[in-house]
Every structure is written in C-alpha cells, then in structure tokens.
Amino acid sequence: MAIQVPIKVFRYRPGTAPHFERYQVTVPDDATVIDVIEGVWAEHDRNFMFRHACHHASCGTCAVRLNGYERLPCIVPVTEALAGRQELVVEPLRNFPLVGDLVVDVAGFFQKQAASGLVITRAAEATLSGQPFAHSELFSQAGALEERAYNRFENCIECGICISACPTMAATDKFWGPAALAGIRRATLTTGDCQEKAALLALADSEQGVWRCHSAFECTESCPQDVDPGGAIMSLRREIVGRKVKHLFGAG
C-alpha cells in the first residue's frame, strides 16, 4: 500500500539564507525515511542535495537529524518516524560545515578518523610483495573462528552522528570527537606494539583529546551501531591516569 508522507526539509545553498520547504512524497507503507528523502529528489526537485549509498546502515553517509534526533534514515521505518506527528522534519547534522541542503562536509571528520590509524584488517598486507597466495594461506586469511573478531569491519560506520550530538563539538571543532577517540581506544586494544600504543594514548591525552569531553554521553545515546564512544573515552582516561600513577611510583 502506498502512503503520502508530508516532509519538511532543510534547504540551503552557500550565500543564501537557510530555510525549510514542505513536500508530499508517495512511498510504500514499509518504506524507510531515506526513501522519502530520495522521493523529494525524484518527485520534486532534482537539485535537492542529500547523501546516501548503502541503504542498510553500513556506509554511514545518510545520517541526518530526523524530527530533531540524529538518525540513519535508511533504517528508520516511515511509519515509526511519523507516529504521532503531522510531518517529518529533516535537517542536516550539526557541528559540520554545511555544503548544501542535507549535505555536510565530512572532510575534517575523516581526517581525525585517519589519525587513529585504525583499519579493518591488515591480514593481506604481508602479501603485497606480489607472491601468489598459497591455497592454505587463502583459507587461513578467513581465520580461525575465535580470531575472526578482528577480521571484520569496525562497528563504527563513521556516520558523524556522535559529532552532531556532542555538546563539546558544538563549542569547538578542534576536539578529536567521540568517533575518533573510540577509534583510538579500539586501536589501543588490538595493537601489539607498545610504542604504537603509547603514541595512541598520547594522542588521546593531548589538549584536544579525552579531557575535553564533559560526560554528556550523548554520543553513546545516539550511536546507531552501539559503539559507545563515551565509554571508550572514559576507558582511555582510566588507562592514561593509571599509566601516569604507575610512572610516578613505579618508574620513579
């Protein structure tokens, strides 16, 4: 069954005043909000700018503020988003530079993400020498069951939702931010290299690191992937303080 969905969308172009526009979009009743956003483009205005790719919460591109909350519209059913409301309200993420309409500039965010150096798997790098893979090697890349946890994509899909929800990010964009700090925490857990770990902790301990967080825990509340950046920041603090205390007494 098709339903008519009223939607109020944030419209903006550089040099013009931001404003809202209202549309009616027809979608199937089991559609998700990204289908409605895409419908604004398909049915009403081909100049409408929005981000999307995978439609199953893996790419992290489509994050917006839906009815005032940070959400991935690709996994929110329209009926759920409309419950008890006259219309959907869709705005871009906060705390990012605006590009146009719902599109924000994620460059600075990804630059911070890169700092943790966290990648999904390094298993294949040893074979960059160009040697052909032995069959047994191919299958061992799949890994033993218990080791496979690290041969996986990170839960963090780098959608930027935590950046938009974080009150500290509202005050300064120099703060490393919840996602990057969660990445750093994750990298400290998996690295076997003491020096790398110390460097990662130094990054977290820097001026714009974990100490700028003021424990609103909005990142953890809003994360669609249960990454718990707030918890990660607190764990980093404990580790940093623990090391300093140890250094004070142990290493003298």
Binding site: V119, R122, A124, T127, L128, F133
Partner: peptide
C-alpha cells in the same frame, strides 16, 4: 579477488 585483497586491505573482510 586475488588482486583486490592485495591492493585494498582496508575495505575488505576476508572471511571466506
């Protein structure tokens, strides 16, 4: 498949 797992390790899960 054999080329990509060499050149693009950080966008892959090599799970079989």
């Amino acid at each position: 498949n054999l080329i990509l797992r060499r050149i693009m390790p950080d966008a892959m899960e090599l799970n079989g």
